[in-house]
Every structure is written in C-alpha cells, then in structure tokens.
Amino acid sequence: MVKQDYTVSFVTPAFLGDAEQNGSWRTPPFKALLRQWWRVAAAKEHNYNHVKLRETEGRLFGNAWLENNFSQSQVKLRLDNWRSGKMNAWAEAPKSISHPDIKFPVDANLYLGYGPLTRNKEAKKTTFKDKLNAAIQAEESNALKIIYADGSNSAIQNTLQIIHWLGTVGSRSRNGWGSLEFGGDGVVFKPLEQNNPLLQVISRPLEKCLELDWTHALGNDDKGLLIWRTKENYVSWREAMKDLAKIKIAFRTSLKFNRHNGQMDCRHLLAYPVTNHPVSVWGNQKRLANQLRFKVTKTAQGYIGVAYHLPCGIPSQLLNALTEADRNWIVKQQLGVWQKVHGILDQQMQRI
C-alpha cells in the first residue's frame, strides 16, 4: 500500500454539512470527489464504456454488487480531524450585481449559493439558511492522508492533479463554493495550462461528449479546451466569485424563452428546474445538474475564477419523459445552444 500525506485547503467557503447540515470536515465527500474525477481520468482507457468503467471502479473503491468479486475499498482517506467549520455566521458584505430579469440588485453570494444561503428580508441581507453553522470558511485547511494499492499509483495521482485544477466539494460546489487545493511538504502540482498532456487525455470533441448521457470528459472545440479563466486577477476570492456570478447571468439570460409554456426551451439545457419556467412533463421534481462549472483558484498573482464544461447529453430518464417533439427539438438545438454559451464565455473570459 502507498501512503501519501497532503494538506487540503479551501479557497472559498465550503457548505460541507454533517447529518444536521452543520459545516463539518468529513472524509466521505472527499472520497466521492476522488471517485467522480477518477471516472473522468479513466474513461478513455475504458473506451468510454460505462459498464467496464463501473466494474474497475468497483474493484478499486469497493463494491457489494460485482458477482463473486465483492471487495473492500483499496483506497482509504483519513483527515487529521473531523472538526466543525469555523464560519458561524455569514458576515460577507453583499456584492451587488444586476440581473436583467430582476428589478433590484442581486447579491452575487446569494445568486451562486442559494440553498445553503438565503435572504433575510427584515435585515435585507444574505444569511445562512435556518441560521445553522453552515460553512467551513475560506483558508481553513486539514491534513489528508490517502492510502491506496501500489498498482493504482498513476491513476490516483492523475485524479489528484485534476482535482487540484478543477475540484470543488459540498453544496453549490458547481457554482464555485468549496473550491479546494492540495499542498504539503514536497508536493508539486502542475499549473492549469492548455497544452498539459493530462488535460488532452481527459478531453473529447463537444459533439462526441453530447452523444453520451453521463459525465466522462472535458469538452473541446476548434478553439481548444472548454476551460476559461477570468481576465483579471483579484485580491480576494469574493471578487472572483462576484465576477463568476455576473458571467453566469450573462450566458443564462442570453438564452431567451421563445417556445410555448411547458415545452423544452434553450435555457432548460443548461440546468433544471428553471424558476417560473417549468417543463410540463418534468414538473418540479426532475433535476438536471449544471454541466458548466466554476472554481476559484489562488495563484501567485491573486485569485482567478475558472469555468469549464463537462458536456454530456440529457440523461435518458429525463429524455424519455419528454414528448417526441421536444426530443426532436433537442437533437436539432443542443449543439448550437452550447456553442452560443461558449461564445459568451469567450467574450467574458479567456481560454486557458
């Protein structure tokens, strides 16, 4: 077994809850994060075959379903402690931004963190939901030990490198909360650069990614990888998050609702549900997670916001619930919708 020690630090506050939804350091979310990005790192090697990939994942991370091959996990994680988060109240000053669909200024923190965050109407400020001890604050760190089978060394190392580049954890992590980084004595991770061989291995053309209904690769197009960074370097994570909120509003509101009420429309392809614009056959219970994700990264020049696209088709459970007309509409429109979103990001940000 190989044993490696790291320091894991949060760049932005993490809504990483325990059983009572209070902010707390726990290993299960980090184990889930490792598995999530391992799938992306290993997908090409398995020819993007989800059945073979799942079998290998089961043998590496443990399973109770492989016939005659049940196994415990060969990967173990240990945190130095499982302490509660230190952010006991949301004291961040509102970062007001404008939204074309809303008449009054919007707090960027609330826009990207709605759920664990809410608005106190009486005090007219953003607060934790239900006033719980809901976050691990930025700059908090913990010692993390990872133990794994020697034969898995390259796969685990590649996965940790990808997490260092793009990983976030906890509630609303796809919006940049819970952005993390690894460090430690003698630990060296490479910077996020377009020509890194590992990034090329885990990327596929956008059109190919949309053919599968599960997350398996970063997208690329004729301009390169679908990874962007903010044009500016900021002195704090707060300013980087504010910029990401403005960028999200820009690409979402560029997609207007032009079809009849209850039909699938362009903005539904980004994530679902959409406030005040339900798809009739999906109702309010169906969920489509964001494919376009954010992260805040700390560099020698300051903080930057990162956006990246892990494209995939609409999951079959959602697709099969739609009318035939809406399914045909998706086939014709899906690629063009994402290309329009990428065009907005090319204007608002810059490719790595």
Score class of each variant (00 low, 15 high):
155 A>M: 15
203 S>M: 01
174 R>Y: 07
146 I>N: 15
230 T>V: 11
220 N>P: 00
225 L>F: 02
135 A>Y: 12
201 V>F: 12
150 D>G: 14
210 L>Y: 03
140 E>F: 02
243 D>I: 13
195 N>K: 00
142 N>Y: 03
224 G>F: 00
224 G>N: 10
188 V>W: 02
207 E>I: 14
166 L>S: 03
143 A>S: 13
213 D>W: 05
217 A>C: 13
184 G>C: 03
214 W>Y: 11
240 A>Y: 06
156 I>S: 05
216 H>I: 07
215 T>Q: 04
205 P>V: 03
166 L>E: 08
135 A>V: 04
214 W>R: 05
193 E>N: 12
185 D>I: 03
215 T>I: 06
233 N>T: 13
229 R>W: 10
231 K>P: 11
137 Q>H: 12
187 V>R: 07
236 S>R: 05
232 E>L: 08
211 E>T: 14
233 N>W: 08
151 G>Y: 15
145 K>Q: 15
187 V>P: 04
218 L>Y: 02
234 Y>W: 13
222 D>P: 03
190 K>L: 06
189 F>H: 06
165 W>E: 04
225 L>H: 05
144 L>F: 10
221 D>G: 00
154 S>F: 14
205 P>R: 09
237 W>K: 10
138 A>F: 06
153 N>Y: 12
225 L>V: 02
181 E>G: 05
152 S>A: 10
145 K>W: 12
207 E>P: 12
154 S>M: 12
134 A>T: 15
162 I>W: 10
245 A>L: 08
218 L>W: 00
133 N>V: 04
163 I>W: 02
206 L>S: 11
206 L>A: 10
